[in-house]
Write a protein that binds this DNA or RNA. Structure first.
Length: 560
RNA sequence: UGCCCCGUAGUGUAAUGGUAGCACAACAGAUUUUGGUUCUGUUUGUCUAGGUUCGAAUCCUAGCGGGGUAACCA
């Protein structure tokens, strides 16, 4: 089992300090607060591991809360998906799932209090007008002409907003803070907007909805959150959240911001992911090329590998771009220790062993996982006719090639040495269609009693026993961008045309006919693979999770 | 143009006033019945300039660079 790195970071250091001065009576309570308007991706996993991880490390609690303040974009489908993803990653939230909409009534009461205290007012300006009054950041804004309405008028207007007397967008409730503030968020931000919209949980009860800025800090406060961990773009909102809880006189959670995850060769924004799904560039949110949790899961990533990845990349306030290879290395590391080794031939080339009797077969013993002695062994059928990988034979090999060549000898993994005597070609195309070989019965198990060495070992499957399968080979979703991309360049130009290559006629070792979704395999010398959810009893389908490192391929590429 | 945040090997991070480490990548070698794994070694770094200090990646100032920010999105 791979060791999950015990991590420390600036956030944990802040918590250590808070604990040392007795803040929050020693409580540590975090939360993961997604908006249910899409599926979670690897960037969310970073936040999940952080928040749930901190709760676990400190014996605290972590809530799952849906920030569902915008009824127009949110759906129950996403709520279900997100809960499933969090659990799959290996975390369990404290108590019931929470929703921002749980406190819509309380929020309304809070708003009333601010109005009565002369700290909030109903404004009739349009959205465009509000923007103009707010002004540019280089100069102070102008007060709204409605800023000094009486408490009574504000109370009356706000109630009528709630009662649905006004059309969408016609009025807002605004906090009365400071139109000259250098921080734009303090220039009388909107607290409520009018939307006659159906909400996924409250239905048609409300026609005014609280803004995120007005809601977020209060939900944290009411849930007793001690440390509100969020991404960097909310940093300038912190003074506003502080203003709300202080003027309401309620518990004051401490907000701490960290840098979101960026990964090379993929996209992370919900907008772009949605664009890929809607544009048909991928098969859906769970397409194995997607950096979504469901996508990675279908691709064959394990929860451990994702958690290890999140620990590995650390947490800071510095903007960063993590190389995709780091994620790949994590899954290799986990699967190397746990995956069953099997043989699969993706691009089959027939081999006939002329001195092996036709119609006879034997079993060869295979080690299931050399990294795990407990995994044991299994029997694999061997016979006169085999398939080997087409790339494991070359008529005119380059220097350093030590697989099968005409007149050369190679070891069949856990089998025998074979020697290639004749190359049969299609008379029309010249394509190699079959190899006539002989085997050395003395080399059973792959060892030569005379001590002669064979450099290459290749994988194979018995032609009589092989099962057919479709195998899907995945590469990065995006190619490396050009050195100096122009600003107008469409990010979709970088989509990798080879991100999915479907191999139809793969020949697999018979044991794979009984593969299940939870099995993880290493197809020896090729990579790690798992059964795809689209597989049926008559049609096996495997996904390549990640390739094995391949120093030969790397060298070839370098020389090319 | 204001304000805020951030600058440590190619990448991601550690060191919190006292020897600049680690991981990934790269490169070289050993081992190997997976050109995998494992092991060994090598290359590469504190944005710049001042200041404080016996001593600065760390504290201060300025500059430079990157990011964020002017929804009735979150």
């Amino acid at each position: 089992m791979s060791q999950e790195t015990k991590s420390t970071d600036f956030i944990r250091q802040i918590i250590d300090h808070d604990l040392s001065i007795g803040k929050n009576q020693g409580r540590v309570h975090t939360r993961f607060p997604p908006e249910p308007n899409g599926y979670l991706h690897i960037g969310h996993a970073k936040s999940i591991c952080l928040n749930f991880g901190i709760a676990a490390d400190y014996g605290g609690k972590c809530n799952l809360r849906f920030d569902d303040t915008n009824p127009e974009t949110e759906e129950t489908e996403y709520v279900e998906g997100i809960m499933d993803d969090v659990r799959w990653l290996g975390f369990e939230w404290d108590g019931e799932v929470k929703y921002a909409s749980d406190i819509f009534d309380q929020l309304y009461e809070f708003a009333l209090k601010l109005i009565r205290d002369g700290k909030a007012y109903v404004c009739d300006l349009t959205a465009a007008e509000v923007g103009q009054y707010r002004g540019p950041w280089s100069e102070p804004g102008q007060d709204s002409p409605y800023r000094n309405r009486s408490v009574e008028e504000n109370l009356d207007l706000f109630e009528r907003m709630k009662n649905g007397e006004f059309p969408d967008g016609s009025r807002t409730l605004r906090a009365k803070i400071d139109m000259a503030a250098s921080n734009m968020n303090l220039r009388d931000p909107a607290m409520y907007r009018i939307r006659h919209a159906h909400h996924h949980r409250t239905g048609d009860k409300w026609c005014i909805y609280p803004t995120y800025d007005w809601t977020h800090g209060q939900t944290d406060s009411l849930e007793g959150i001690t440390h509100s961990i969020c991404t960097l773009e909310f940093e300038q909102h912190r003074p506003l959240y502080d203003w709300f809880v202080e003027n309401l006189g309620i518990h004051h959670p401490q907000q701490i911001e960290f840098a979101r995850l960026n990964l090379t060769n993929t996209v992370m924004s919900k907008r772009r992911l949605l664009e890929l799904v809607r544009g048909g560039n991928v098969a859906g949110w769970d397409d194995p090329r997607m950096p979504t949790i469901v996508g990675l899961r279908r691709r064959g990533y394990t929860p451990e590998s994702i958690r290890n990845f999140c620990a590995r990349i650390g947490v800071t306030k510095a903007n960063s771009l993590t190389e995709y290879g780091v994620l790949e290395q994590e899954i290799r590391e986990h699967l190397n220790k746990t995956a069953t080794r099997v043989m699969a031939v993706l691009d089959p080339l027939r081999v006939v062993i002329e001195n092996y009797p036709a119609g006879e077969f034997e079993n060869r013993e295979f080690i299931n996982n050399p990294e795990d002695p407990e995994a044991g062994t299994r029997q694999v059928p061997f016979g006169r006719e085999l398939f080997i990988e087409r790339s494991d034979f070359m008529e005119n090999p380059p220097k350093g090639y030590f697989r099968l060549v005409p007149g050369g000898e190679v070891r069949l993994r856990y089998g025998y040495f074979i020697k290639c005597n004749e190359v049969i070609k299609d008379p029309q195309t010249g394509e190699v269609v079959e190899l006539r070989c002989t085997y050395d019965p003395e080399t059973s198990g792959g060892k030569a009693p005379d001590g002669r060495k064979v450099k290459g070992t290749i994988h194979w499957v018995s032609a009589n026993h092989a099962v057919d399968a479709e195998v899907r080979l995945y590469e990065a979703l995006l190619l490396d961008p050009p050195e100096n991309p122009s600003p107008e360049r469409d990010w979709k130009e970088d989509l990798n045309p080879n991100s999915l290559v479907v191999v139809k006629g793969a020949k697999l070792e018979p044991v794979l006919a009984t593969a299940t979704m939870s099995d993880r395999y290493q197809f020896e010398r090729l990579g790690y693979f798992c059964l795809d959810k689209s597989a049926t009893e008559s049609q096996l389908v495997f996904n390549r999770t990640v390739t094995l490192k391949d120093s030969w391929a790397k060298e070839q590429k370098k020389n090319a």
